[in-house]
Design a protein around this nucleic acid. Sequence first.
RNA 1: GGCCCCAUCGUCUAGCGGUUAGGACACCAGGUUUUCAUCCUGGCAACGGGGGUUCGACUCCCCCUGGGGUCACCA
Length: 471
Amino acid sequence: MKGQIRVRFAPSPTGHLHIGSLRTALFNYLFAKSHNGKFILRIEDTDRDRLVPEAMGQIIESLEWIGIEIDEGPKQNGKFGPYVQSERVKIYQDIARKLVEKKMAYYSHSSNGQLDNLRNQAIKAKKPFVYRQIFEPETKPKGDNYPIRFKIPSGQTVWKDIIKGKFTTNNQVIDDFIILKADGFPTYNFANVIDDHLMQVTHVIRGDEFVASTAKHVLLYRALGYNLPDFAHLPVILGPDKAKLSKRHGATAVLDYKLEGYLPSALVNFLALLGWNDGTDQEIYPKVELEKKFKLSKVQKSPAVFDQTKLDWMNGEYIRMLDVKELARTIKPYLMEVGFNTSDDKYLEKVAGLDQERLKKFSDAPILMDFFFMEPEIDTKLLSAKDDSSKVKKWLIEAAKIIEKSSQNHDHLQDDLSDLARHLGIKNGQLFYPIRIAITGKTAAPGLFETILTLGIDKSVLRIKKAISLL
RNA sequence: GGCCCCAUCGUCUAGCGGUUAGGACACCAGGUUUUCAUCCUGGCAACGGGGGUUCGACUCCCCCUGGGGUCACCA
């Protein structure tokens, strides 16, 4: 009988949080939530060369934005801290030395050149290259500035993955791998195992790329006398070309999605369905529901292609669910960024409401709504695209009169304009089309009458008159 | 290349020996509508190939093919 479920998300701070890593974090989080467990954030900054100082902040910002609550981590601490590996090096060093004392590990004195040689020989002989202590040079230099290798025992290593099932690895194919680097920092394989044990992690849920090294980890657990956690390896996320999702596929940084104007709720929903489903036809899952229904056993074994189009659709779904006030508040910074005056909250709310069902992501707002905040650029050709400019001019003059008159009472504006169309012997669309162009500069826009009323009769009439002058 | 994993519409997927192989996105057509969008209706579209096992295979087994992962003093 296991105690409380504890999972961890353990990124290395080498750059922005990748969308694929976020999916891993999310699955960890959902699994923890569904079992009333704890979610730990551990920063694995043992590679001093690739370290990016601001990365940790960005990772935390990304997780906070998406709504993943961190129970223990660099910011919130906890009983098992510190949660940044560079602050724990002494722990790893002590354990590594103890393994050396027990002859389960050894200082490795072979140079990179010697290693390359051995590797090349193996490739030529079409044999796998596996490092063993016998390759160590006869003469051993003094000093501690050498990496420590873990000695792989003979036999087989067996472990079970919750998603993928049983794995058996012949130890003959596993290198005597380095656990402590010459700079005194541990390698991932080493620090990861020690911390997962020390932090009492019960389930190691991570990306597929770690399947191959799990046998090494299991061997370490055994050597160290630790109990094995449960493992679950998540399928990778691919780009449209079926190669692992990377920068060349476009935005991969989580914060890019925030900037582009995706809702965290939509991204969570989308990512959750990328490699997981609950066996029903349901597509829309609020986060709280995922926190209840998520099951590792329903996670897909094969990789999934990241479908931007479906994300856009889902984001639209979530935007439509938004309260107008909230929508207005969310859109505001996007409009301000391009210099629109959004100080009138009531006006902004009306505008937001009019475009709510047209919005797929918030960064689309400025181009969709520009005419509400500035004089539109009118393309004269568009005005007369469907009918002669002389006719259009005549119609617009009549329409302007009617709209102008409606400033007292606009209850009948739509009917009056329909009547006008009838009198002129044309279809509603023929009349409304040039009016729309005159007012919005666009062929596609929100409903004409709502637009006129939101913009204001005066301003609308002015724009129509300006269009008339162009004809 | 060695080792390992995977395989249902273009994409995300349901299916767990007997189904008209279901849903969603995308796409197409129609309807609602002043345009776009939303909404509604319908349509197109898949079990990679070959062997077995079985009365019967998308489902189980083997081979092939294809895809992916991994082979660092990176994680």
